[in-house]
Design a protein around this nucleic acid. Structure first.
Length: 137
DNA sequence: GCCAACGTTGGC
DNA sequence: GCCAACGTTGGC
């Protein structure tokens, strides 16, 4: 199983929106970046991901699960763009802030730190465990 | 609100 | 195929 990080602007698509979708989940659509798309193509059903709020909050706020592999993005006719479906699994009890991530030397290699603009990112198993601990899981 | 970093586009 | 111009993202 692989681990990922999905980034969203809370005013556009928030963790609460994701929770409201329940087990049916929702497409992670709107991605128009090749790197991000390629990572989604690598995802398998059952993979886990962090749900990260950018902008004002800048925190990992939830855990999601991939429930459908990459398929055409329904929000565009452009066949280049694909997306996976994800559902909310649980809320992180103590949101892990970007500040806390940057303060932890074990997380200094995270894509979130090195390339903050990438909206879909891989997370290593080590990083996953550390952030779960920081989040109180 | 600003600006740096990055990715994409299009002219040559 | 290069590179300048432009648009977008996201931290500060």
């Amino acid at each position: 199983m692989a681990f990922w990080l999905f980034k969203s602007e809370p005013n556009t698509w928030s963790w609460q929106h994701q929770i409201d979708k329940g087990d049916a989940g929702e497409e992670w659509d709107g991605v128009r970046n090749y790197q991000a798309r390629n990572f989604m193509r690598e995802m398998a059903v059952g993979d886990r991901g962090f749900f990260y709020h950018s902008l004002k909050e800048k925190s990992v706020v939830g855990i999601v699960e991939v429930i459908a592999e990459a398929h055409p993005d329904s929000t565009t006719d452009d066949a280049r763009w694909e997306c996976v479906d994800i559902k909310a699994v649980e809320t992180v009890p103590t949101p892990v802030t970007l500040e806390a991530i940057k303060a932890d030397p074990r997380l200094s290699e995270m894509v979130l730190v090195k390339n903050s603009r990438l909206s879909v990112q891989p997370v290593t198993e080590t990083e996953w465990k550390i952030i779960c601990e920081l989040g109180g899981l």
